[in-house]
Design a protein around this nucleic acid. Structure first.
Length: 585
RNA sequence: GGUCCGGUAGUUCAGUUGGUUAGAAUACGUGCCUGUCACGCACGGGGUCGCGAGUUCGAGUCUCGUCCGGACCGCCA
């Protein structure tokens, strides 16, 4: 027998028992005649103690041990002479009678500690060692719990989990597909699903009523800290529902998850914000509403004073940074540099310091008197002691820059509290998005999203102004999920394809199976998909999703541990009837 | 496709204006140590300064190219 207990469970109550433990050698502390060993497994650490003076065999075994050796240890649980309150097992230790080496280990390339000395690349290359560390192990445990609770909750709500295929059909809309060559149909390719979107809609036609699936999705696009080429969604769809039904159902899911796993109570009703408000008040379609600091429009009152930057700008707006009028020149220069970074792209920044004594100082004193500036302050509902930061320019970009500046200031002022969770539904997204490059509309969400009924009359006159029955769930500024009420009417679906510039033939070719299905009594339906990795990261308080994925890919989409992607053999190519040729762009 | 940052001991990093034998911490090895738990003390081994070219009397340091890693923009219905 390898073990009678795990390394995390022995307590004072076990004192006197003879036990067998197996695990990895975390650390060895030799004190001459006696040696302490920390033995680690998934469940914790137990200290072993060896009195080597009287036992040559034991002494020899211990001398040959190294870090991360796998050992089986037998001994008696005894009370510690000096207890360690930092360890759950810190009241006891195991007095060793024998140690058996089950496997040796080379010295690991980094320390297996909570605060490891290993860098990211090394940790990824030796991910199996990285997972031995508590932070990664706990992240995977959290992920496991979330998936268990998702299934529990949705099951009680009568959802059923149905698996949909991974080898499907490539479509040009949306993200780039990963493709898989077919051996039996040479020259033809499967695509891996970007999401099970069409299948879940077919399941609604099939009468499955309430469906969900925790499912891998694949998108061949560039990566980010919060974006992997293969990622997991909690994919859900319901029939006979309107938008409010969907939102309420999944507020319930989120409330359940946060309560069960973090013991956090989310608000009874999640705040709902139209997309247009999100953009104009927060400069983002995924506002972090843990703090206020809303963007204020100054276009009306700040223009027309001869300050050219403002006068020729489409939009002037700013934020009120509470209690920060004492910002130094250096700090303000830093912020100016921040907004001038190419990815933010503001030309410059105007500040107004509202001194605690009522004095006003700004970077545009030449153009605006104290009365003007105080008018701004009043308009922005600022108080003495606050700092106004103002940007001007093209409306959309300036709002986005202000949004970034807002997040930066929120961070600096410590307003993004780690133990606070602020869920928000962003609703009323535009149905269509104009793309300058290809000079056509694209579906902002996807081509099956239904338009808001009241906006239907705009279909021919102003399609860009049509709102969609689409919604995103945002928590702490992270897009956790999104969905829509779908089109279930064949005629409307045709109108949609037409607006997207599809010919009848193209629509039939790509989505004929879905349009066909809609001929046979498709119920009204809608759904949502949550980014499972992101949800776990938000619940775990991390910005990166990589630690919540057992074996993630790096920045370039490579798995540095197994070294993929990689070339395949001539034989494999031949079977697929594929020949390779370099193409220079 | 683009912008920025980085690559020096097993690991994390420092390395001044281009100048003697490239350092620290940690890890590793050896010895001492009976209450440690980031044990302590002493000693020791360990380097293709990512790679290639160039400038120079001389390059870890400067220039160009290239590879690798990270963050971001584009992209991600």
């Amino acid at each position: 027998m390898y073990r009678t207990h795990t390394c995390g469970e022995l307590r004072s109550a076990n004192i006197g028992e003879n036990v067998t433990l197996s695990g990895w050698v975390q650390r060895i502390r030799g004190l001459g005649g006696m040696t302490f060993i920390d033995l680690r497994d998934r469940y914790g650490i137990t200290q072993l103690v060896a009195d080597e003076k009287n036992d040559e065999k034991l002494s020899a075994a211990i001398d040959s041990l190294g870090r991360e050796f796998v050992v089986k240890c037998e001994g008696k649980v005894i009370e510690r002479a000096s207890k360690n309150p930092k360890l759950p097992t810190g009241d006891i230790e195991v007095q060793l009678s024998s140690v058996t080496i089950l496997n040796v280990s080379e010295t690991p390339p980094f320390t297996i500690e909570n605060e490891t000395d290993g860098g990211d690349e090394l940790r990824m290359k030796y991910r199996y060692l990285d997972i031995r560390r508590n932070p990664v192990k706990n992240a995977l445990l959290l992920r496991h719990k979330v998936s268990q609770e998702v299934r529990k909750y949705l099951d009680t709500e009568n959802f059923i989990e149905v698996e949909t295929p991974f080898l499907i059909k490539s479509t040009p809309e949306g993200a780039r597909d990963f493709v898989v060559p077919s051996r039996m149909s040479p020259g033809e390719f499967y695509a891996l699903p970007q999401s099970p979107q069409t299948f879940k809609q077919l399941l609604m036609v099939a009468g499955m009523d309430k469906y969900f699936q925790i499912v891998k999705c694949f998108r061949d696009e560039d990566l980010r800290a919060d974006r992997q080429p293969e990622f997991t969604q909690i994919d859900c769809e319901m029939a006979f529902v309107e938008q409010e039904d969907v939102l309420n159902t999944f507020e319930g899911l989120m409330t359940h998850l946060f309560k069960q796993i973090l013991n956090v109570s989310l608000p009874k009703h999640f705040h709902r914000m139209p997309y247009a408000d999100a953009m104009s008040l927060y400069g983002s379609d995924k506002p972090d509403i843990r703090f206020d600091m809303r963007i204020r429009n100054l276009s009306q009152i700040a223009k027309g004073n001869g300050f050219v930057v403002f006068d020729k700008a489409e939009y002037v707006g700013g934020i009120v940074v509470p209690g920060s009028a004492d910002y130094s020149r250096k700090q303000l220069d830093e912020l100016t540099k921040f907004v001038q970074k190419p990815q933010i792209g503001a030309k410059g920044m105007v500040y107004v310091k509202l001194g605690a004594d009522g004095a006003v100082k700004s970077s545009v004193d030449k153009f605006f008197g104290p009365d003007d500036l105080k008018k701004w302050a009043a308009h922005m509902e600022a108080n003495d002691g606050d700092l106004l930061l103002i940007l001007a320019g093209d409306r959309t970009r300036t709002l986005e820059a202000l949004g970034q500046l807002r997040l930066e200031m929120g961070g600096r002022l410590g307003l993004k509290k780690a133990d606070e969770f602020a869920p928000l539904w962003v609703v009323d997204f535009p149905l269509l998005e104009w793309d300058e490059e290809t000079a056509r509309f694209y579906a902002m969400h996807h081509p099956f999203t239904s338009p808001v009924k009241a906006d239907m009359h705009l279909f021919n006159s102003d399609p860009g102004a049509i709102r969609a029955n689409a919604y995103d769930l945002v928590i702490n500024g992270v897009e956790i999920g999104g969905g829509s009420i779908r089109i279930f009417d064949r005629e409307l679906q045709h109108m949609m394809f037409k607006a997207l510039g599809f010919t009848q033939e193209e629509a039939e070719e790509q989505f004929g199976f879905l349009l066909n299905a809609f001929k046979y009594g498709a119920p009204p339906h809608g759904g949502v998909a949550f980014g499972f990795d992101r949800l776990c990261a938000v619940m775990g308080g991390s910005e990166s999703i990589r630690d919540y994925i057992a074996f993630p890919k790096n920045n370039a989409g490579r798995d540095v541990m197994i070294n993929s992607p990689s070339e395949i053999s001539e034989q494999q190519l031949k079977e697929l009837q594929i020949s390779l040729k370099k193409i220079d762009n």
